[in-house]
Nucleic acid binder design. Sequence first.
DNA 1: GTAATGTTTCGGCCATGATCGAACTGTGGA
DNA 2: TCCACAGTTCGATCATGGCCGAAACATTAC
Lengths: 241, 241
Amino acid sequence: MKEGPDLARIAALIGEPARANILTALMAGRALTVTELATEAGVTVQTASGHLARLEEGGLVVPRRSGRHKYFALRGAEVARVLEALLGLAAARGHLRSRPGPRDPSLRAARVCYDHMAGEAGIRLYDSLLARGFLGPAPEGLALTEAGAAFVTGFGIDLATLRAGRRRVLCRDCLDWSERRSHLAGALGRALLDHMLGQDWLHRVEGSRALRFTSAGRRAFDAAFPPVDHWFPEGTNPQAA
Amino acid sequence: MKEGPDLARIAALIGEPARANILTALMAGRALTVTELATEAGVTVQTASGHLARLEEGGLVVPRRSGRHKYFALRGAEVARVLEALLGLAAARGHLRSRPGPRDPSLRAARVCYDHMAGEAGIRLYDSLLARGFLGPAPEGLALTEAGAAFVTGFGIDLATLRAGRRRVLCRDCLDWSERRSHLAGALGRALLDHMLGQDWLHRVEGSRALRFTSAGRRAFDAAFPPVDHWFPEGTNPQAA
DNA sequence: GTAATGTTTCGGCCATGATCGAACTGTGGA
DNA sequence: TCCACAGTTCGATCATGGCCGAAACATTAC
């Protein structure tokens, strides 16, 4: 009954699964559209829109209009710090949101994250592209370099279609909490996964997000994306306000 | 849909008004009983008991049985740090839980906090007792010194009854967020307020937590608890795990 | 023993709010 | 101009969970 900051209001704002997913997705530091956040949160666009309105009103996120897209980002480093603290506490208390079977090794090895590859293989791919200078930092976050464009074209990706057809961001890094590392998302991440699936390098495990390599696919993947040692993948600051 | 700590679960635990009140009350660093926490949270004992079970299961509080009382305290400094961060963010975002009329000056001057006095007058009382060595730090938090016992006895408090009759903690400091200072709670805090009410030094304002001094009462109060300058009231660490 | 006090469990009521379908607004491209 | 796409608003549904009364359980005092 005392006066004071309304702890409950701000915590309740975070303490709703869909909103928590949205905020977690925004922890990568980049602005995402309503539709993207809806997918991340696993809800429809209407629902996400409502949640984002609440989050904005609560001062946790800020919108930025760009054409017919509306990008949302975390509002400042203080919000990120609070989320970090909460994530740490949740991890320390053993509260994990591992829905599809806790600690499944195959999920850690390679899995689908929305429409791109995550897990150890996803990180390998990302690191390998970065280390060879195919990906580089850009004002918008992450960009394909000239050498990178040549590489993915040689890999079999139709970059022109990718860039023209969809309005979606080409490259984005996606932070995995299990690995604490980034992997490649965005239109390119999707295209790479699609291509590898089409080449039978790997296939989805039914009823799971896991991906399983074929033996030939594993060899081809290792050749295309050789492992990188001594590389710190977090080149860009994920907490840029 | 990513793996990771369950942000929502831990935040939802905090983001419920009653539970948030409980946690805020525990931010003082001392263990409180179920009944006390129920009063702090403004709910019945059954409800508080249920909330505390959830908080315990979530790893935010730890119980400690002592006879027929069950004391709850925050579980470690990490929890306190998260709450601090949340309180700070809430304050920064202007989320205040001032239910009874925002910024009522009479509430700030003197008000009831459960059963003892809070507000500027409450802080004055507390500081005055501390500065004169009537209250001092103790293993249990706060204790009445020998001089203090003599003082309150002279003031008209029946210390023997207070100590024998009730099992309640005699002295406790209560942290006010509006003032960021401590005031005296516990059995003694209650007894002092009751005594002053009985002496017509002040009376409750109907329908409010505010207390209003009579003119004679104000003079008597000022004489009994002279203001203390240059005194930092937070002598004990409120964050002791 | 009985009484008093503190805490928990059970049951049912009820409000909050999350969710989605459908319809509407606004922007950009052909 | 028409269409496609992004986002918002509205309305209805529905589940979660907070809440308290009553009663059981536990512990201490007398």
